[in-house]
Design a protein around this nucleic acid. Structure first.
Length: 384
DNA sequence: AAAGCGGGGCC
DNA sequence: GGCCCAGCTTT
């Protein structure tokens, strides 16, 4: 009776049956599970990278309505595609998707490639996404490992090594491939992910409802939440940024970022990081000078936004200012324009810049903001 | 091997 | 406020 918990080959049949049966009875009715269209499946996988199902669902419908085929996407201007992506984050996904669609049209006769290897050659297609599309849309027997699978497998085998290590990653991929039900690869991959999404939850695993709990070594330890083991994350860096609204009547100055790098091609206010101990008003003037060559006197603090990006905690202070009317000499951007907030909102822009544009148009602070302090000197940085 | 890239939901 | 999410790319 003291049989090992570890799931061995002799139990694969029962393990697969148990999970597939559970999936058949409990899977969510997600729209991309109802289409045989490889392009639609691919789009769902691209959107779902680091993004939750709830967020993706309406955006997937809207994107498909606007770009119903890979040809339509390939023919669309990149700016429109990025604008359509606005709010989803990780905008490189939109640029890669667009480039990949053009490659599909140019090199694959307009048909989404049907093999893992060919898919992997497309921009934005990593191992996960290529395997997901190959298995779900084409039935290829290749396993996926996403955050859900990682958690399920790490618990199943009670893997004690940090999952961030490449060696551990390899082990997870190998194990997932071994467990794969090759005759129903797409359904199987979704079943493992669904288990992670509905039952094998990060903080409150529902082991009592788990169809494969009897094979789970993590559960047997009594502390399934110890897995997957995460390495200690690096501390957050505190940064202060300023952005400046330069007005000309109803219009404001926006600058277009270069086509390469972060926030590529997006339209933003002059902005930048404040130096250590530098008063915000001085930083605002300096950044306007550095980005546009204009001298200005920042007058008032309009808005204060806070957000956390990866390892940085950013406080963004938005100032209004009058320009000296001089000629603009850009140094970090590839275009500039004086436009109304309404027009700005139709361009590619980040959520933070969108919040500023909405504030300028509506005069209301977005949810994520805190009221500007009533200091009139703008030295918010505790310099004194 | 590690960092960079967004944003929203949830506890 | 911290943690997490159907990852990929670059250094």
């Amino acid at each position: 009776m003291s049989e090992s918990i570890a799931l061995g080959r002799s139990a694969f049949g029962a393990f697969r049956r148990a999970l597939r049966q559970w999936y058949g009875a409990n899977c969510r009715a997600l729209p991309w599970r109802e289409t045989p269209d490889a392009y639609a499946v691919w789009l769902s996988e691209a959107m779902l990278q680091q993004t939750t199902v709830r967020t993706v669902e309406p955006r997937w419908r809207r994107f498909l309505a606007r770009y119903p085929t890979v040809q339509a996407l390939a023919a669309a201007p990149l700016d429109d595609v990025v604008a359509e992506w606005s709010g989803l984050g990780y905008y490189a996904r939109a640029r890669n998707l667009h480039a990949a669609a053009q490659r599909v049209v140019a090199d694959f006769g307009g048909r989404v490639p049907d093999s893992f290897e060919a898919l992997l050659s497309l921009p934005g297609m990593g191992r996960y996404t290529a395997a997901a599309v190959a298995s779900i849309a084409f039935g290829e027997a290749v396993a996926v490992v996403d955050a859900n699978v990682e958690r399920v497998v790490a618990r199943l085998d009670a893997i004690a090594d940090p999952v961030s290590q490449p060696a551990t990653k390899r082990r997870l991929w190998d194990r997932a491939q071994e467990l794969l039900d090759a005759t129903h690869a797409g359904e199987w991959n979704q079943a493992v992910m669904e288990l992670g999404a509905l039952v094998c939850l990060p903080r409150n695993p529902q082991c009592g409802a788990c169809p494969v709990a009897r094979w789970c070594a993590g559960r047997a330890t009594g502390e399934p939440t110890r897995y997957p083991v995460k390495a200690r994350p690096a501390p957050l860096r505190e940064t202060r940024e300023v952005a400046v609204v330069l007005r000309r009547g109803e219009r404001v100055l926006v600058l277009r970022r270069p086509a390469e790098g972060s926030f590529a091609g997006m339209w933003e206010l002059p902005r930048g990081e404040a130096l250590e101990g530098e008063p915000a008003r001085d930083a605002a003037a300096r950044i306007v000078r550095e980005t546009t060559g204009l001298d200005c006197g920042p007058r008032a603090l309009l808005l204060r936004l806070k957000h956390v990006v990866m390892r940085r905690r950013i406080e963004l202070l938005v100032w209004s200012a009058e320009s000296d009317g001089g000629r603009i000499r850009r140094s970090r951007h590839e275009a500039h324009e004086w436009i109304a907030p309404d027009e700005w909102l139709t361009r590619p822009l980040s959520t933070t810049q969108r919040q500023i544009a909405l504030f300028l148009r509506d005069g209301r602070a977005p949810k994520r903001s805190t009221p500007p302090p009533d200091t009139d000197d703008g030295d918010l940085f505790g310099g004194s």
